[in-house]
C-alpha cells in the first residue's frame, strides 16, 4: 500500500547538508504495524515527516527516492493533491501532546476542522462525528469536553484527542511519531492499548516510531532499525529481538534493563555519540562505536543484505562470525566482572 524507495531527505544548514534520511526503503501493507527504532538524531522523525511531506521545505529537500502511496509518488504531488491525502488517507500523531493542540481553540473545533477539511458536512453532523470519535478514544463525557480548551486536559487525554483528530477521516495509515515518549508509563500503556484497539476495529496500518524498544516489541510486527539516516537492520519482530544480526541493534538491546537477568549485570551503554550527519564517517557509519569493528569496516560501507526472506542486515559480519564475536566479548566481560569482584 505504501512503498518507500531509496528515500533521501537532506537538510540544508549553514554548516552543510545534513543527511538526515539517506537511502531508506520499506513497505507497509494494510493493517500492518511497522516499528521504526533508533537513537535520537537517527532520522526517524524526519523519515516519518517525509511521508506526510511535513518537513519544512526549505531547508529540507528530497534529492532522491520515491514514496509510492496507491500508485502515486507523494514526492511529486502538487500541494493541493497532497492535502487530499494528508489527514484523509495518511494521518499522523506527534511526540508532544502538550504542544500539538492549538491552545486558543476548543477541542471540538480542532476535531471538527479535521472532519470538515475533507468532508462537506453540515456542522451538526460533524459535531456528532466528533463526539463519536472522542467516545472511541475513551474521553469521558465527550459532549461536554467538546467545549473545553487543551489546557484543561492532561497529557494522556490530549494524546487521545490527537489520536481522535488523526482518526477523523478513517485514514489507511496512521503514523505515530514517539506517541508515548512524553507520557508517564501507565498512560503510555493505555495509549498503546488504544492504538491496538483502533487498529483491530478499523484495520488501520500503523507506523510507530520510538527509541523505546519495549514499545516497539509490544506494537510492531515488522521492525526497522535506523542509524544515522539509514536502515541497518530490518525484519520481523522475532528476527530483530531473537536473531539480532547487527552490532548496533545488539548494543541497543543490551542497553535495556532486564527484569529476568540472572546476574547483577550493569546496564551497558553504547559508547560515543551518533555520528555527524554532515560529514559521516567513512565505511560503515557505526564503525567508530562498534565493539566488533575491524580495519575493513572503515573502508567498506555494507549494504542491506538479505539473511532470510524477511530479515535484512547491513553488516560485513556473517551470522556465524557475529555469533562468535559476541561469545568472545561476553567471555571477556565475564572475566572482567570476576576480576572486579
Amino acid at each position: 500500500m505504501l512503498e518507500v524507495k531509496n528515500l533521501k531527505a537532506h537538510i540544508d544548514t549553514t554548516d552543510g547538508v545534513v543527511r538526515a534520511v539517506d537511502g531508506v526503503s520499506f513497505t507497509i501493507k494494510p493493517g500492518e504495524t511497522v516499528g521504526i527504532v533508533g537513537e535520537s538524531g537517527s532520522g526517524k522523525s524526519v523519515l516519518a515527516h517525509s511521508i506526510m511531506q511535513l518537513n519544512p521545505k526549505p531547508p529540507t529537500f528530497y534529492p532522491q527516492g520515491e514514496i509510492i502511496f496507491e500508485g502515486k509518488d507523494l514526492l511529486q504531488l502538487q500541494d493541493k493533491e497532497l492535502r487530499k491525502i494528508r489527514g484523509k488517507e495518511i494521518a499522523m500523531i506527534f511526540q508532544d501532546p502538550m504542544s500539538s493542540l492549538n491552545p486558543v481553540f476548543k477541542i471540538g473545533d480542532q476535531l471538527m476542522e479535521a472532519i470538515l477539511t475533507h468532508h462537506h458536512l453540515p456542522k451538526s453532523k460533524a459535531k456528532q462525528r466528533a463526539i463519536e470519535l472522542l467516545t472511541d478514544v475513551g474521553i469521558p463525557d465527550p459532549e461536554k469536553r467538546m467545549n473545553a480548551y487543551p489546557h484543561q486536559f492532561s497529557g494522556g487525554m490530549r494524546q487521545r484527542v490527537l489520536i481522535a483528530i488523526a482518526l477523523a477521516c478513517n485514514p489507511k495509515i496512521l503514523i505515530a511519531d514517539e506517541p508515548t515518549t512524553a507520557l508517564d508509563v501507565t498512560i503510555q500503556a493505555q495509549i498503546l492499548e488504544l492504538m491496538k484497539n483502533i487498529q483491530e476495529k478499523y484495520g488501520t496500518a500503523i507506523i510507530i516510531i520510538s527509541h523505546d524498544l519495549g514499545v516497539i516489541a509490544q506494537m510492531a510486527e515488522k521492525v526497522l532499525v535506523m542509524y544515522s539516516g539509514r536502515i541497518v537492520e530490518k525484519g520481523d519482530v522475532e528476527d530483530i529481538f531473537y536473531r539480532t544480526s547487527m552490532p548496533y541493534t545488539w548494543s541497543l538491546l543490551r542497553s535495556l534493563p532486564r527484569i529476568d537477568s540472572e546476574s547483577r549485570n550493569r546496564l551497558l551503554n553504547i559508547e560515543g555519540h551518533p555520528p555527524n550527519l554532515i560529514h559521516p564517517p567513512s565505511g560503515c557509519n557505526f564503525h567508530p562505536r562498534c565493539p566488533f569493528a575491524s580495519e575493513q569496516c572503515k573502508m567498506v560501507d555494507p549494504e542491506l543484505t538479505k539473511r532470510s526472506p524477511e530479515h535484512y542486515v547491513a553488516c560485513i559480519l556473517s551470522e556465524m562470525e557475529f555469533k562468535e564475536a559476541k561469545k568472545r566479548m561476553e567471555n571477556v566481560e565475564r572475566e572482567g566482572d570476576l576480576n572486579h569482584v
Partner: peptide, 27 residues
Amino acid sequence: VNQDYTKTARGKGVKESTVLMKHVFSN
C-alpha cells in the same frame, strides 16, 4: 509557524493559508 500545533493542522490537510491566518495568527 513551526510550532507543533501547526504540524497537527497541516497534518489534517488544512491549507497553508488557513494554517497561517487561523492557527498561527490567532496565537
